[in-house]
Amino acid sequence: MKIAILVREETMQRCTGKGCLNAFFQRKDAFARYGDEAELVTFSHSGGDIDHKIEMMLKNGVDVVHLSSCTRGKSPNYETLAQRLAEHFDVVGYTHGPETGKERATVFLRAKRL
């Protein structure tokens, strides 16, 4: 299982990624569902050329994209981004902390690919 984590670009200006990375490496919160076979192959922000990032994730065999908890909480295009990514990948709409968001529901989408 190859995993990508996409974080909110604006948050990355001040965030070290510790919450997302700890959750992945400790297999807790959103990553509790995976065993030791899960491999983190992408850790990036969702800004910039998302089509190129999707292309590179496909090339690297990503199966599941996790949108960071800060994206769920603060990004106005959270649902739109999740839908775009679900054209190719399964999408889990958080990384760490509670599964349910304070102000919006967490998305869980299956890839639409054949």
Rank of each mutant, 00 (worst) to 15 (best):
M1H: 03
M1A: 05
M1R: 03
K2I: 05
I3W: 06
A4P: 03
I5G: 08
L6V: 00
L6D: 01
V7M: 12
R8P: 00
R8I: 04
E10D: 15
E10Y: 02
T11S: 15
M12A: 07
M12K: 06
R14S: 10
C15D: 14
T16F: 06
G17R: 13
K18T: 11
G19I: 12
L21N: 07
L21V: 07
N22A: 07
F24L: 07
R27W: 01
F31R: 00
A32C: 08
R33T: 05
R33W: 01
D36W: 10
E37M: 00
A38N: 05
A38M: 05
E39Q: 14
H45C: 10
H45T: 10
S46F: 13
K59C: 06
V64T: 15
V65R: 01
S68C: 14
S69K: 12
S69N: 08
C70P: 04
T71H: 08
P76T: 05
P76F: 04
T80D: 10
A82W: 03
Q83H: 13
Q83T: 10
R84P: 03
R84I: 11
E87D: 14
H88I: 02
H88S: 04
F89I: 01
F89L: 02
V92Y: 02
V92W: 00
H96F: 14
E99H: 11
E99F: 14
E103S: 15
R104P: 06
R104Y: 05
A105R: 13
A105S: 10
T106R: 13
R110N: 12
R113K: 15
R113P: 09
R113I: 08
